[in-house]
Simulated assay, not measured.
Amino acid sequence: MRIASLILTAFAVITSAQPILNGTNGTYIGPENGHLVIVGGNLKSDSIWERIISLAGGPDAPIVVIPTAGGEPTYSANFSSAESLRRLGAKNVTVLHTYNPTVADTDEFIAPLLEAKGIFFGGGRQWRLVDAYAGTKTEKAFQAVLDRGGVISGSSAGASIQASFLARGDTADNQVIIGDHTVGFGYLKNAAVDQHVLVRNRQFDLFNVTRAYPEILGVGIDEDTALIVHQNEAEVFGSTYVLIYDGKFWSREGSELKNPPAEKFYFLKSGDKYDLGTRQVIVTNSTGGGDDY
């Protein structure tokens, strides 16, 4: 009995050290219904905002903006992300916020989410979203938006929270990429999302995650650029690049003569597509290389 008890204790210690990866749908890496719009921060392009509105169902679709990651004491209906959506034609935008998980677990608080067709998570510190909403009726209501075919979107912290592994979730310092919060909301399963990647020279940081958890797909998204996900298809949309950390290397001009290092990543540009299930670039005529030098 003592040996069995020691084995169980050791197993509990080992498993408790691993991040629990949210997401219950085993068929797809992304949402079976609906879309994700994962933005790498500093969202300026009207085209990305317009894509969010379109995927939500158009100008009349109810969209809920969650500014909680920002850390301000209160937020008004005129929060900047809500104003951007309204400026581009969204007619039914609600700002919803609390830091109190007890409040987030009430029917009264989640009422605006029950009919929502879109959600936008603002930037800041992603652990604040976990502390406020994880395990509450609000988190379930977020998921329900996807389940009925809506869109979940977010920028910066609002990008990282969408993955199952929460990168930069440390309460003390956002430079710690594996911090004291490692579980995101899991709309993109078995993955970690980093943001502001090229602007802040973060392109090597996700190796800390993939070394510790080799099964996790690393996705780095630069500013004003989105990865749009439905089921297993991910498309780059925006002004710069998405970086993929899947243990392989890919180049649109071919990889045979390349000499990448042991730890690899590669770039995808706007219009490129990636299969999250097979972890391969979806090669089309527009993806392949040309004769330009």
Rank of each mutant, 00 (worst) to 15 (best):
R128C: 04
T225A: 08
G288Y: 15
E83F: 01
R86N: 00
D173V: 05
H35L: 03
P73F: 14
L113W: 03
R211Q: 15
P260L: 02
A90G: 01
Q175V: 10
G122D: 14
I221C: 09
L129Q: 02
V145H: 06
N259Y: 11
S54P: 03
K117M: 03
S164Y: 04
W127D: 13
L146M: 02
G57T: 11
N100I: 03
A132D: 09
F109G: 02
L146W: 01
I228D: 08
L113M: 05
G186W: 13
L268S: 05
A10K: 02
G169V: 06
T24L: 15
L198K: 10
V193D: 03
I14H: 13
A104M: 08
V219R: 07
E50I: 01
A90S: 09
G220Y: 05
F165W: 12
Q143N: 14
D60Q: 10
P59S: 11
L55Q: 10
N22G: 15
S160I: 09
P112M: 06
G118D: 05
G124N: 07
T102D: 14
D147W: 01
E83S: 03
A56S: 10
F204A: 14
T287E: 01
R86C: 00
F267E: 13
E83R: 07
D170S: 06
F142K: 04
Y293C: 13
Y266N: 05
A10H: 02
P260C: 05
Y75N: 01
W250H: 11
A12H: 05
G169R: 03
V193L: 06
D275A: 01
F11K: 11
V37N: 08
P73T: 15
G169C: 07
T9P: 04
H97A: 12
G124S: 10
T24Y: 15
A90P: 09
I52G: 04
A167L: 09
A226Y: 14
R86I: 02
A172R: 15
T106Q: 11
G169F: 06
N190D: 13
K140M: 06
G40M: 00
G158N: 05
L129W: 02
G158D: 02
Y28N: 09
T171F: 09
N42F: 10
F109C: 05
V103I: 14
G118Q: 08
D131G: 05
I244H: 08
G135N: 07
D272Y: 13
D292M: 11
G288T: 15
E83V: 06
D46C: 09
I7E: 09
S84W: 11
A172V: 13
I7K: 08
S76P: 04
T106E: 08
A212C: 10
L88M: 10
V199N: 15
I152L: 04
R86P: 00
S45G: 11
I282P: 09
E83I: 04
E139H: 07
Y133T: 00
T278P: 03
F267D: 07
L257Y: 13
G154S: 00
P67N: 02
R86L: 01
Y75H: 01
E108Y: 08
T15M: 12
G41Q: 08
R200T: 07
A141F: 06
T136L: 04
G169T: 04
G179Y: 03
S5V: 07
E108D: 12
Q126E: 14
G288H: 14
E139W: 06
